[in-house]
Structures are given as structure tokens and as C-alpha cells.
Simulated scan of single mutants.
Amino acid sequence: MHYDLKFLPAGSVIVVSLNHGVNLHLMDDANFRRYRSGQQARTAFSGIPRETPFKLPVPHAGTWHLVATMSGLRGSARIGVQVLKPSNV
């Protein structure tokens, strides 16, 4: 699953609600393009959240993408994504 979060200012927080474990990857636009083309990409976060809702801080202003994968995990996941911009954080 891919979520195009568009442009986010620094200080934004992405809140992810999950019903099942998934691998989350938060990356900026340039790294998402590398990821999509099969190249090595750097992520601001990669991992399986142990709590829900899970909060991911946006490290700098830019266009952001959240990718959720089931790599090595079983089941199906429902994911809710909310963005809190600095005035709402």
C-alpha cells in the first residue's frame, strides 16, 4: 500500500492506526522514486510498529510517501493514516 502524503512542513506528524502488523517505510519523494525503480532508498523510518496508533515525525519539509508492506508477515491489514501539521500537533 502506498500513501502519497504530498508536501508536509517540518514538524508534521503522521499518525498510523493498524489492526495488524505491517512494515512501514517513510521516505521523501527522491527516495520513493528510487524505491519504485528497485534502487536502494533511504528511509526516515522503516520498521514494524509495536503500538497503535503509531506516530511518525516528519524530519524536514518536503513531499513524503508512506509505504506499508506485508514482507514476511501473514494476514491482511487495515491502515488508517492521518497527518497532523505543526499547528495541529
Rank of each mutant, 00 (worst) to 15 (best):
I48T: 11
L24T: 07
L8N: 02
K6R: 13
I48S: 07
S71K: 14
V22E: 03
S87Q: 07
P9G: 09
N23A: 02
T52R: 12
N23C: 02
L66F: 03
I79N: 08
L5G: 02
H65D: 01
K85M: 09
V15P: 00
D4Y: 06
P53S: 03
L56A: 03
Y3R: 06
S37E: 11
K6A: 15
G75H: 01
L66T: 13
H20L: 02
R78E: 07
S76L: 06
W64I: 04
Y3V: 10
D29W: 11
G47F: 07
A30I: 15
L66Y: 03
G75W: 05
W64P: 10
M27Q: 02
L18R: 14
L26D: 03
H2I: 13
D28L: 02
N19S: 07
A61I: 04
V16E: 04
A68E: 02
L24D: 05
R74P: 01
M27P: 04
V16T: 13
A41S: 12
H65M: 04
V22G: 06
P59I: 07
V58M: 10
R42E: 14
A68D: 03
G72S: 08
G62Q: 07
V13P: 01
V81M: 09
L66M: 02
A41G: 00
Q39Y: 13
G38F: 05
R50E: 04
S76T: 09
F32I: 07
A41I: 00
A61F: 06
F45C: 02
N23G: 02
I79Y: 06
A41Q: 03
F7N: 10
S12P: 10
P59Y: 12
F32E: 09
P57C: 08
F54A: 15
T69D: 14
V83A: 14
P53Q: 04
R34T: 05
N88C: 04
T69L: 11
S71E: 12
K85C: 03
N19P: 05
S46M: 10
S12R: 04
I14P: 00
Y35N: 05
G21P: 09
N88H: 13
L73W: 08
A68T: 06
R74T: 15
V67N: 08
H25W: 00
V13A: 08
R42A: 11
P53N: 01
V89R: 14
F32G: 01
L84A: 13
G72W: 08
A10R: 14
M1T: 06
S46E: 06
H65I: 00
G47N: 11
F32V: 05
P53R: 08
L66S: 06
P49L: 02
I79T: 05
V16G: 14
D28G: 10
V58C: 06
L56C: 11
N88D: 15
A77S: 15
S71V: 14
